[in-house]
């Protein structure tokens, strides 16, 4: 679905958007009939879909909480989606009030919505860009204006990498981002996995997402771990998202039902 640079995107709400489907899984109403129909098809194929989204969002919340406690004050949230509840700046500022956040998404509606929510907030900006062009994200004047890359930054690539195909070389993308970061920076990744799922289910899910602009690229634990190249994984490494520093041990029960694997890496040196 690469669009030439000179051609602006069309905004077609008849076509399901992964950002709005995700909002639906989370119980939001920032979605349209086509989004709901696709999301319901997904739930029919994989009944855990809403649970996955919630578990992923909860992982994001705990990771941000962890990062602010580790002293990080700058966040680059790529594939940030429709801001609903528990946005990165809200979570971070609960612990560290001055935290600065850049939200990046390709979806123009998600971006417009984010801009409205964040209007008047001097410590956050919204940038419409594509993760597949990390150099453009890094060079974007709004990103440069808000973030000091000489200081640690947490890059969040949460529930997005499964929309990046192997042809787009995700490892290189992450490498480019890593090379721009100062020591003490962090990388947070989560993405859908098919570990322990049956092939048919996976096929169904992929069929649903082919209706959107973002087909699904499901990856293994090993592939996900390799994405942290150059980073030191913080405990407990790459795990089912509910297992990542749960608030209560029982929250991590049946963790594999969450389908998402995730982890946090720290850039040493």
């Amino acid at each position: 679905m690469q669009r030439p640079d000179w051609a602006p995107e069309t905004i077609d709400i008849e076509r399901p958007s992964v950002a709005r489907m995700y909002d639906y899984y989370l119980g939001g109403s920032h979605n349209f009939a086509a989004d709901r129909a696709a999301a319901q098809a997904m739930v029919a194929a994989v009944p855990e879909a809403p649970l996955m989204a919630q578990a992923n969002r909860a992982f994001l919340r705990r990771a941000v909480q962890f990062l602010t406690e580790a002293g990080v004050r700058q966040f680059l949230d790529i594939g940030s989606g429709i801001p609903t509840v528990g946005n990165v700046h809200e979570i971070a500022r609960r612990t560290a009030p001055g935290s600065r956040v850049v939200y990046v998404d390709v979806d123009p509606v998600a971006v417009a919505h984010s801009r409205e929510i964040l209007a008047g907030d001097d410590h956050s900006v919204v940038v419409q860009e594509d993760l597949r062009h990390p150099e453009r994200i890094l060079a974007h004047p709004d990103v440069r204006g808000l973030l000091d890359l000489d200081e640690p930054v947490a890059v969040l690539v949460v529930a997005v990498l499964h929309f990046i195909s192997d042809d787009d070389r995700p490892a290189e993308i992450l490498g480019n981002l890593r090379d721009a970061l100062a020591p003490g920076s962090h990388l947070v990744i989560s993405q859908a996995s098919d570990e322990g799922r049956d092939v048919e289910e996976r096929g169904e899910a992929q069929r649903v997402y082919r209706r959107t602009d973002n087909p699904l690229w499901i990856r293994s634990r090993a592939e996900l771990t390799a994405f942290f190249d150059g980073f030191e994984l913080v405990e407990p490494g790459v795990v089912w998202v509910p297992q990542w520093r749960p608030e209560a041990p029982e929250n991590a029960e049946d963790a594999e039902r969450a389908v998402f694997l995730g982890g946090v890496g720290r850039l040493g040196g």
Partner: peptide
């Protein structure tokens, strides 16, 4: 969300 669509 509709307003966001319009803005977009």
């Amino acid at each position: 969300i509709r307003r966001a669509v319009m803005m977009a």
